[in-house]
Design a protein around this nucleic acid. Structure first.
Lengths: 209, 209
DNA sequence: TTCAAGATGTTAGTCGCTAACATTGAGGTA
DNA sequence: TACCTCAATGTTAGCGACTAACATCTTGAA
C-alpha cells in the first residue's frame, strides 16, 4: 500500500532531503566538515537535528554519493567471459561513467554538486575512509556479477584481486576528475588510469561485445 | 634529554600499552567491536579510560597496525626505473611482506596477534574503512618514492593509478591471508594477487636488481 | 468529517573523545 | 637521605554524534 504514486507526500520528503543535503555540502565546504555540527546543518535547513538523522543515517552520508552498483554490475555480467578480468571490469567502469556524466535532466547543476561531494570526500579523512569502504562493497557486487565458478576458490581470489585493482584505478581517476573540476571527461580519465595500471592493450577500444 | 635508555620508565609505558591493546583485541573479538566500549577495555586492562586515549588516539587505533611505509618506500626507491611501475611497486610489496612475516623475535605470537587484528579490520566496517584510508596514505609514500619528474602531471597520475591498484591487490591478499589463518605464505599470496591483476609476466621472479 | 499513518519535534541518554586540574611515583641531584 | 622535577595516571566536566521514546501535527484516504 502506498507504493506507486511518486507524488504528493513523498515529493515533500525528497525535497526536504535535498534541502538538507544541499545546505550540508555548502556548510562543509565553507567551514570544513569537522567544524560543522549536524545541528548547524539542521538549523541552516530549517529542520531539527532529529530530522537530519531520519533522512541520513550518519553525518557522513550527507556527502557520500550512491555508487551505481547495479549499473556497473549489469555491464560486468553482460561482458564476454572470454576477455581478461580487468578488461571486463574496466570496460564496465568506463561505460557506466559515460552514462552517468552524459545526458541527464539537470546535468550541469547535478555535476557541480557531485564534484563538490567528491572534493569533500577526498579532502576529509573520515569521508575518504567511508568512500573507500563503499567501493569495497561495490567490489563484492562486481565479483558476483563476473559469475565465476563458485567451486573454484582460486578463481574467486583472482576475481577479487582484479576487481579491487580496477576500482582503485577508478578512484584515482575520480580524484583527478575532482581536482580538474570536471574539465576533463571522466570516462577518458578512467581509461587512462586503467591503462597506466594494466597496460594500454588491456583497455583498447572495441565497443562490440 | 631522556631519549636513549629504552629502559626503566619507558618499559612500563610500552608494557601498559601492550596490555591495553591485548585486552582490546580480545574483547573486540569476543563481544564484537561496536558492543565493546572503551570503558570496557580500560576496565579489563585495569586502567582508566583516559589512559587508553593517552596511548591510542582513537578506539580504532587499538586494532589498526602500522603499515611499514618506510620499509616499502625504500624498496620502491631502490628499484630500477626502467621496469614498469606495477613491477617496481609489486616487487617492493612482496619483499616487504617477506621481511615482515619472516624471521622475528616472538614470531609466532606476533603473527597470531596480527592475524586477529586483520580479521577484525576486515569484518568491522569502521575498522575496514580506516585501514583502507591508511593504505591511501601509504600510496602517497609509494608515489613519492618512485621519484617521478614532478613537472610531468601525467607521470604523477600514472604513478597514482599504478600504486593504488597494486595496494588494492595487496589488500585482497591480506584478506585472504587472514581468512586462511596465515597458513599460506603471505608473499606468495601477494604475488598471486598481483598476477591476477596485472598478468603473470609482470611479477616474474628476478631478485637481482 | 473522521481516522490511520507518516513526518517532524522534543527530551533524555549513551558513547567516543577532549580539556583542565589534581595526584602519584620515578629519577636524578644536593 | 632528603628533595625536586616531571612524566604517567586519575578525575571531572563537557562537546558532539547518534538513538530511543513519546508527543504533535499534517496528510491522504475512507
Amino acid at each position: 500500500m502506498s507504493e506507486r504514486h511518486p507524488n504528493l507526500r513523498e515529493r515533500r520528503r525528497s525535497e526536504t532531503r535535498r534541502v538538507i543535503q544541499t545546505h550540508a555540502v555548502r556548510l562543509f565546504t565553507d567551514r570544513g566538515y569537522d567544524a560543522t555540527t549536524v545541528a548547524d546543518v539542521a538549523d541552516a535547513a530549517g529542520v531539527s537535528a532529529m530530522t537530519v538523522y531520519r533522512h541520513f543515517p550518519t553525518k557522513e552520508d550527507l556527502v557520500l554519493i550512491d555508487q551505481p552498483a547495479r549499473l556497473i554490475a549489469e555491464r560486468v555480467a553482460g561482458s564476454s567471459p572470454a576477455q581478461p578480468l580487468v578488461r571486463r571490469i574496466g570496460g564496465a567502469l568506463v561505460d557506466a561513467a559515460a552514462v552517468l556524466t552524459g545526458e541527464r535532466d539537470g546535468a550541469a547543476a547535478n555535476e557541480r554538486f557531485l564534484l563538490d561531494c567528491l572534493r569533500l570526500m577526498i579532502a576529509t579523512p573520515a569521508l575518504r575512509a567511508r568512500h573507500l569502504d563503499s567501493q569495497y562493497a561495490l567490489q563484492q557486487a562486481i565479483v558476483d556479477a563476473l559469475g565465476n565458478d563458485t567451486t573454484d576458490p582460486d578463481a574467486a581470489f583472482r576475481a577479487q584481486a582484479a576487481a579491487s585493482a580496477c576500482l582503485a584505478a577508478m578512484h584515482t581517476a575520480l580524484a583527478r576528475w575532482a581536482e580538474d573540476d570536471g574539465r576533463v571527461e571522466l570516462p577518458a580519465l578512467i581509461t587512462r588510469a586503467l591503462a597506466a595500471s594494466f597496460g594500454d592493450d588491456v583497455v583498447a577500444i572495441d565497443h562490440d561485445d
